[in-house]
Design a protein around this nucleic acid. Structure first.
Length: 467
RNA sequence: UCCCCCUUAGCUCAGUUGGUUAGAGCGACGGACUGUUAAUCCGCAGGUCCUCCGUUCAAAUCGGAGAGGGGGAGCCA
């Protein structure tokens, strides 16, 4: 029995010429030569390139099956690995047996035709789009990034904490939440006062999908020292942009005995590591992205790996924007949040590479961010990258109970909801910090894909949860 | 949530001032040629002009409503 190989292993030279091999996959193209054979480009997802199979017309099922195998058909091929006589590939398979497993019903209307498609169209056939070059390449880069994140953090002795998806604590405060309920929506139980009686719901109280694992992961940080979450998060914001999803993945490292600079160091080092991993491991896919999607992708990744990120205080950024002589649609003033156009100017024009903005005004940031000595700013940081904008958001956390309490009061938050979060400051508190990396934004940055809906298999956005 | 744009063949798009039988490229299919690889050449098929209502002698074209999609802004990751 010949060995079943992945196309990646064969094309990278792991099989020997003259070996008998088996490959299985889907037909990308088939061209028939009157010289008495067909060229079949077979793809199995293991790498960017398909392998070329030569099917002679003396195969018993040549007329009956092989000539019917159009683009998208599946087959198992047994044959001899040989050096290619043609150009464009080093190896090819001289087939001795081809088992056509599944034909394509109606080739004329098969959505994935051997021609360019728009991303908008491919979204409408999300169940078939992984068969395209672009989405296949995105899938491999996405996987490479995910594996690299785990590998990097593991090598730094981080523990991966599986924080909950369902949360019954109404204190995450990072955005609108999706409700989780098993109550009969057509016959809701009511309290004496006419409100919905959630005490009868599944958890005995209101429950939601998480918008961030940060508060939960902080609890493990204050025991395990270096931890992270990596999983899906949900925001019920009515955001309709190429950078937002209702369901997305987020990496949130949290480190104890650390300040904002340690936090920025970690984020920078992790981003450099994972970008290097993509450069090292996915050269085939990057070559495609660089040629067809965004001619600056490789250059951009190399620039991340080879350069230190620019670090800048919020206040200095305001100065730079005000002195830029640039006319912005929104005015620049200390104390207001930066607009997209401001972030773009800083990352794309002023420094031309990723920039870490630090120490924002306290009034535009969350309650848990650590108050600086000036009592005007907090130890927050955003990493802005050209083309995407905000890729990372993080902060040093407020570890002093009294300061945390006054921030909670100042923002009018219900202190009782935070009892367990406050306990962390009562029992052995330490300085700690962390950040969140939007995983899809990272994939978009690493591939040059312009719309975040094309870097996640099945995008969920307002009004759209098809498939 | 706000502003703008789009919807015509499997896909990408033309379609003039409202006027006879709605076109092209790609793809598919058939043929020629060919160790081809974004092949090339010839031919053929393919239409609920998003849906509904209205204006009109006449609507792909004008008006209204609805559905779907996209770009930008805000929110953020």
């Amino acid at each position: 029995m010949a060995k079943y190989w992945s196309i990646a292993d064969i094309l990278s030279g792991k099989a020997k010429v003259d070996d008998e091999v088996v490959v299985k996959g889907w037909v990308r193209t088939r061209k028939d030569s009157k010289a008495g054979f067909s060229f079949i480009n077979l793809h199995d997802g293991s790498c960017f390139d398909p392998i070329q199979v030569i099917a002679n017309n003396n195969l018993s099922n040549y007329e009956s099956d092989i000539l019917k195998a159009t683009t998208g058909s599946s087959m198992a091929v047994t044959g001899k690995l040989v050096a290619s006589q043609g150009q464009g590939q080093s190896f090819e398979i001289q087939a001795t047996e081809i088992d056509v497993l599944g034909l394509v019903d109606d080739p004329a209307s098969y959505p994935i035709q051997p021609k360019p498609h728009t991303m908008e169209f491919l979204r409408s056939v999300a169940h078939l789009r992984p068969r395209t070059n672009a989405i296949g390449a995105v899938t491999r880069v996405r996987n490479c990034l995910a594996q690299a994140i785990h590998r990097y953090l593991h090598s730094q002795q981080f523990n991966w904490i599986h924080t909950p998806i369902i949360t019954a604590s109404d204190c995450e405060g990072a955005g609108e939440m999706f409700r989780v309920s098993t109550l009969d929506q057509t016959n809701l139980p009511l309290t004496d006062k006419g409100a919905i009686d959630y005490s009868q719901d599944f958890f005995g109280k209101e429950a939601f999908l998480t918008v961030s694992g940060q508060l939960n992961v902080e609890t493990y940080c204050l025991s395990m020292s270096k931890v992270y979450t990596f999983g899906p998060t949900f925001r019920a914001e009515n955001s309709n942009t190429s950078r937002h999803l209702a369901e997305f993945w987020m990496v949130e490292p949290e480190i104890a005995f650390a300040d904002l600079n340690d936090n920025a160091d970690l984020a920078e080092s992790m981003l450099q590591y994972i970008c290097k991993a993509v450069l090292d491991e996915r050269g085939d896919d990057l070559a495609f992205f660089n040629q067809r999607i965004d001619k600056t992708v490789i250059e951009r990744l190399e620039s991340i790996v080879n350069n230190q990120f620019e670090r800048m205080n919020y206040s200095d950024a305001i100065d730079i924007l005000q002195k830029s002589g640039k006319k912005f649609e929104f005015p620049v003033a200390w104390g207001t949040d930066l607009q997209s156009e401001h972030e773009r100017y800083l990352a794309e024009e002023h420094v031309g590479r990723p920039i870490i903005l630090m120490n924002y005004p306290k009034d535009i940031k969350a309650f848990y961010m650590r108050m600086n000595d000036d009592e005007k700013t907090v130890a927050a940081m955003d990493i802005l990258v050209p083309g995407i904008g905000e890729l990372v958001g993080g902060s040093q956390r407020e570890e002093r109970l009294s300061v945390l309490d006054s921030r909670i009061d100042e923002m009018g938050l219900p202190k009782e909801n935070y009892w367990w979060y406050r306990d962390l400051r009562r029992y052995g508190t330490v300085p700690h910090a962390g950040f969140g990396l939007g995983f899809e934004r990272m994939v978009a940055y690493a591939t040059g894909m312009q719309n975040i809906r094309d870097v996640i298999p099945f995008p969920r956005t307002p009004g759209s949860a098809e498939f």
